[in-house]
Design a protein around this nucleic acid. Sequence first.
RNA 1: GGCGCUAUCGUCUAGGGGACCAGGACGGGGCCCUCUCAAGGCCCAAACACGGGUUCGAAUCCCGUUAGCGCUACCA
Length: 456
Amino acid sequence: MGGARTALFNWLYARHFDGDFLLRIEDTDKVRSTDESTRAIFEGMEWLGLKWDETVIYQGANLERHQKDAYQMLESGAAYRCFCTPEELDERRKAAEARKEAFKYDRRCDRLTSDEIERRVASGEPFTVRFRIPEGTTEWIDLVHEKIAFPNKDLEDFVILRSNATPIYNLAVVSDDIAMGITIVMRGDDHISNTPKQILLYKALGAEIPVFAHLPMIHGMDGKKLSKRHGATAVGDYQHQGILADAMLNFLALLGWSPGGDREIMTKEEMVELFNPDGLQKKAAIFDPQKLEWMNGQHLSRKSADELGQIITNANPGLVLPGHVIDLLKIRARRIDDIVRQSGPYVSSDPIQYDAEAIGKNWSDKGKAREILASAAETLSTVSAGDWRAEHLEPALRKLAESLGVGAGKVFSPMRVALTGFSVSPGIFEILEAQGRDRALDHIRNALAWLGSNPG
RNA sequence: GGCGCUAUCGUCUAGGGGACCAGGACGGGGCCCUCUCAAGGCCCAAACACGGGUUCGAAUCCCGUUAGCGCUACCA
């Protein structure tokens, strides 16, 4: 979710300012970066319609350049070899913690004589390459936070190349960003403390420093960082739950950005138009699925039947719903599958699966329900196929209610269950018209039969 | 522990010194429309974390406190 929103803001920024949006897969951690996790990224991006410019870069393919950059810094003296083993480091770290002190690498390997270094390298002793933090202060103007400064004394000489000669994240990222000509780095603010290290790397490599923008995190309803226990946390989960990509995008955009004023529902194009880094929020946002759902309903209502039909068919291969049915159902729908789930009775005469709650609510008295449905069927059958329109059906049914001596609702409610299976639906005349004469009458006959075989 | 970031209704936010006894939206409560509501309309409850400054005047600027979050690896 967080990654998707980061991608969205980068995309929005690039589109708005006419730049290029580049995608790089940071796969240097073999454990974390699986084929599946990479595929989820592509699928998510495709679903959301966030197209990137240029070809995808896989960080793992740039190993040689990463090494070259590390050795260049070793040459220039910006970095040095460290022979400390992970075990030693771990021990010292624990000891420091026991003394309630902050551990910071003591640079002991930076004090080795060149003879000593040569000897140990020659003897095949493994080493990492460590970056030497210079004196001073490292600061930058963040697009979100304005000025952020770190005194270099608080930074630790950090490893840039492991003993197996593979790069550490900070090096790989900077090396790639330079190679890709990245001018703005927009990412989660959990990277703020990496930034001074990276800036120092840019300087050591003699490269221009890009603009940084650190976006706030997304938290779950409990205020903690979004994780598996919060339920659906990947954009793909929402795709499968019938959320529209445009609603997802709109919702994500508003989680940490505002166009100003009261503007809320926006299409992708409108967001590109309105996007401005000034509207970026500094504070972490809490993910509220209820608002997402509401927003999805708003987008559902606004989309054309054609567009929705396309989306429905994509999600349910082989299912093609008529436009007028989609238009009728989309207004009340909150998820795509609400439309699909309710569409059956409009396209088929097959018996309907009646919702238990609807039965309890509107068919509690089975005998009465049969009586009403029977007379409704009788009345409706007098309306010809040519006259089968809401404007004709309404007076006929109202007259029926009157002659039965009951309120219109007493007639419509049982019919609603018979025609849709639910107690909530569009208006009864619209349903009748949308279903068509034959189908509607079939549904009522089926309901009569069901009531007959399920008495009491 | 150290460093950093943040702080307006329960939630997303508007607000960038006087237009604010703080506006919109979700959610909650109520009413209306009405054949139902998960649609639409109207109304209500609900917030500037705290303490100091600066200023004629502060939600808005500064400093502290508190709280939350992040980072603190031969992870990314």
